[in-house]
């Protein structure tokens, strides 16, 4: 992007003074609401504030060591990893496949695109209503939802307890998430496909590449930035999963505990210090994913 105004040294603050003034309110507000509050939350997490009353003193990292020796929290973290893995693989694989199918155009493309995308407009709470019904854990004669569908299609062996399973139940919660966001990932990949210059395909064809070789060696590699962006977008959404679990399983269900639900539960109990510590851990997990992206953006900005 070569659009920036070269700052003329003599104009000094008269060049950047007014724009800085215009953006100052935002800087202050975000400074307080993002960075100030992250600091305040960190502060709370170092206190012994386990009731609604004020803190009595600082306890250092005690809340964090307590958290990491708490089996439920470890289970929450493990659930978060499983959920994120399922969500990422599901949306990326299906989203890529859908985009590939539509890439060269198809009859009724706009219909397919609209239908694939519409779940994204729906809130997790609303989709949770129907998915709780679909993921009903009753089997056999009492089965409803997907288990009933499997049974009547002769696929009874696929019946399973869904999110109530202690080991992999959390992966069932990723199904609605995949349903909602795959269309979005498809749109990203589709835009990626269509951003590839036509000359690249032509060149490949002239070199005698088969259709498959063309995809495999010429087109797919062009899409790796899209895959990276999709991973960052879906990944950071996934780490914050909360609404879907609240809507499908509820806050107290053990098999679907993740840090965000546990944070809410501790908050309602009035254990602010523990709740704040969970919030900080979640922030650190998200930061691992986001900070490299932000650093890359910053470098790009510097080059402008």
């Amino acid at each position: 992007m070569s659009t920036q105004t070269p700052a003329k040294p003599r104009q000094g603050y008269r060049t950047w003074g007014p724009p800085l003034l215009l953006i100052t309110p935002t800087i202050i507000v975000l400074g307080v609401f993002v960075y100030g509050l992250i600091g305040a939350n960190l502060n709370t997490s170092f206190q012994d504030r386990h009731t609604r009353g004020p803190a009595e003193g600082y306890v250092g990292f005690e809340n964090y060591t307590a958290l990491f020796s708490d089996d439920t929290f470890i289970y929450s973290l493990r659930n978060l990893v499983l959920y994120t893995g399922t969500f990422l693989v599901g949306t990326l694989v299906l989203g890529f496949l859908w985009a590939w199918l539509l890439e060269r155009g198809a009859r009724g493309e706009s219909l397919f695109r609209a239908v694939y995308l519409f779940p994204m407009a729906v809130s997790f709470i609303a989709s949770g209503v129907v998915w709780r019904w679909l993921l009903n854990n009753a089997e056999g004669d009492r089965a409803s939802g997907l288990n009933r569908l499997f049974e009547s299609l002769g696929l009874g062996f696929l019946q399973n307890p869904w999110w109530t399973d202690q080991r992999f139940g959390i992966m069932a919660i990723a199904l609605p998430a995949v349903w909602q966001l795959t269309g979005y990932v498809m749109a990203l990949f589709l835009a990626g496909f269509r951003g590839i210059p036509e000359e690249l395909r032509e060149a490949g064809r002239i070199d005698g590449a088969s259709e498959w070789q063309l995809y495999r060696h010429v087109l797919f590699p062009q899409l790796s930035p899209v895959a990276l962006s999709a991973t960052i977008i879906i990944g950071h959404m996934s780490l914050k999963v909360f609404d879907l679990i609240m809507a499908i399983a509820g806050q107290t269900n053990y098999t679907t505990q993740v840090p965000a639900t546990q944070m809410w539960v501790e908050f309602t109990r009035g254990d602010y210090a523990k709740s704040a510590a969970i919030g900080t851990v979640l922030l650190l997990i998200v930061a691992v994913l986001i900070v490299p992206y932000l650093v890359a953006t910053y470098r790009q900005e510097r080059r402008r």
Binding site: T5, V34, M263, F267, T297, Y298, E301
Partner: peptide
């Protein structure tokens, strides 16, 4: 359009606000 000293760092810091889990500021 307007470059003031530190504009790029300000932009990056604003961007970070988009990604934070609100659990980390909620209390």
């Amino acid at each position: 359009r307007w470059r003031f000293p530190g504009a790029d760092i300000v932009f990056t810091l604003i961007l970070f606000g988009m990604f934070i889990p609100y659990q980390a500021v909620m209390i």
